[in-house]
């Protein structure tokens, strides 16, 4: 009777375009590892088999900013490096997100010094800050899940 009998056994499902796009986007965030110091080692562990970020669809670490949409800033950012980070951020296609991983990237950390930027939010917009020196990979996974939750809340029309 009607549509159901017509599609019987064909394996269809119905959804909204918005939800479909959000679902695909949240589960395919490609990170750009902006690793400058020891947090970078934890970031490798985050991507490796033990913590296995592939479960959340972010295993494809892109070394090219053109192909990534999530920048993970892992490590101390000096004033000289700030220009480079900003340049890489600007090269990433919209929409894009930023995780400030660890104390140094979030606030300068233990380097309360003339050469270290006291928090990367001074020159790039940061979505999630991760505490720790360095943070455990679990915390970075939590940050990734926070980004995904944020993505699910935002209407897709915001970007198009």
């Amino acid at each position: 009777m009607g549509l159901e009998s017509y599609l019987n056994g064909e394996g269809f499902f119905t959804t909204r375009v918005n939800d479909l796009l959000k679902w695909s986007r949240t589960n395919s965030l490609w990170p750009m590892p902006m690793a400058t110091s020891c947090c970078g080692i934890e970031l490798m562990s985050f991507a490796g088999p033990r913590f296995d970020v592939a479960r959340f669809g972010s295993e494809v670490f892109r070394m090219s900013p053109r192909q990534s949409d999530l920048m993970i800033v892992a490590g101390t950012i000096t004033y000289k490096m700030a220009k480079v980070v900003r340049k890489i951020y600007d090269q990433m296609p919209e929409p894009k997100w930023v995780i400030a991983m660890g104390a140094c990237a979030s606030s300068g950390g233990m380097f309360r010094s003339y050469s270290v930027v006291q928090g990367i939010d001074q020159f790039v917009p940061v979505d999630v800050f991760v505490s720790g020196c360095p943070p455990r990979p679990d915390s970075v996974i939590k940050a990734l899940l926070d980004i995904q939750a944020k993505l699910k809340k935002e209407p897709i029309s915001k970007y198009y």
Partner: peptide, 12 residues
């Protein structure tokens, strides 16, 4: 801690 604004940062 340095001298404020002596090292330029990119605009946010």
């Amino acid at each position: 801690i340095g001298i404020p604004d002596s090292l330029p940062l990119p605009r946010r």
